[in-house]
Write a protein that binds this DNA or RNA. Structure first.
Lengths: 177, 177
DNA sequence: CGCAACATGTAAGCGGTTACATGATTAC
DNA sequence: GTAATCATGTAACCGCTTACATGTTGCG
């Protein structure tokens, strides 16, 4: 389950360019599986090389023009195989939490700033997900709603916890271990 | 905020060997910032090289014996500098959620198995945190309780969401996009 | 006697991040 | 005109993961 596989999966929802896939990531998946152009474009090239996707003739010549890809039958089989056999990980990696573990060595004002910033960015993410989640245009499949909802639930829990327990980081400042 | 900095920070809690640090990670930090021996030992070597920590004479000769480290004054300054200046990230990376995004291509039985496994492992993590959280031996500083509590809150929210919404992954199976 | 836990390290490989490079089109 | 967005790609770097290699101590 690397970026390559996820790109392959996204193409089961319809034809798309690398840029389109990035937009799709930003709309929903980025909250649980972030990816940049530097991963997407090589992934598409490798998938095309393997015959798992095909490029519907680049519109216009040169390296600047839009290249739309479609998944092939072989690609769908490969995707199903990968989805069926991988042992999917699930990890939080938070430099912020690691830093706060040592908040007794950080100026209180900076601790407060870091928390404020994170809460603000989480709340922005929440609003962003709420927008993506009800586009009216077409109903998302249950799987997509599940993942969006999961991200929302986790972010919400994080925000609530930070607001309710940040006082823990302001006490014990005088007691050196 | 890489493994090196976190190791440096953990040494502010007292002298420790690489193995001790790994145990400390496993007890609490692993839930928000996982690390293996392959990161810890090189990190300690580099920190010692830079004069940020010092090795209290290895007990016994050869490469097998326990090597206990202590943070130096220079190390504490460096740590404070790093904690004060870094822009700490905070990211979830879940191959599981990415996979479930395409659950319309996964056998229902496997979806159920994956969810059951993840829920079980999360509940195990919760029990593990509860044990580490009240050791009776000595009261943890507020910062550590904050991080432990955050991890617990997030895992709990994840478990609850998965239990309450897994039905979303079982519908829409017949409707192909 | 064997197994688990203790204890330290190296090296290859993989994959994500970031910076760089380029250029077209659209809106103000 | 000029800034933002659209659009594709490469290459270096960095750090984590994994496998390997080795040896001791304590328990049943």
């Amino acid at each position: 389950m690397d970026t390559q596989t996820v790109c392959l999966g996204l193409l089961t929802f319809g034809e798309a360019s690398g840029y389109d896939l990035k937009k799709h990531f930003e709309a929903t998946l980025d909250h649980v599986f972030a990816t940049g152009f530097g991963s997407i474009y090589p992934a598409l090239a490798a998938l095309a090389e393997g015959g798992f996707i095909e490029c519907l003739g680049a519109e216009g010549e040169g390296p600047t023009q839009r290249k739309v890809y479609r998944i092939t039958a072989r690609g769908e089989e490969e995707l199903k195989r990968r989805l069926a056999t991988s042992q999917p990980s699930h990890k939080l990696r938070s430099e912020l939490l690691a830093l706060l573990y040592f908040s007794h060595l950080v100026p209180p004002q900076r601790v407060a700033e870091l928390l404020d910033e994170r809460i603000a960015s989480m709340e922005a993410g929440l609003r962003h997900l709420a927008r993506s989640g009800c586009p009216g245009e077409h109903r998302w499949p249950g799987s997509v709603r599940f993942v969006n909802g999961f991200a929302s639930a986790l972010i919400e829990a994080g925000v609530r916890y930070m607001k309710d327990h940040r006082h823990l980081l302001e006490q014990d400042r005088t007691t050196q271990p």
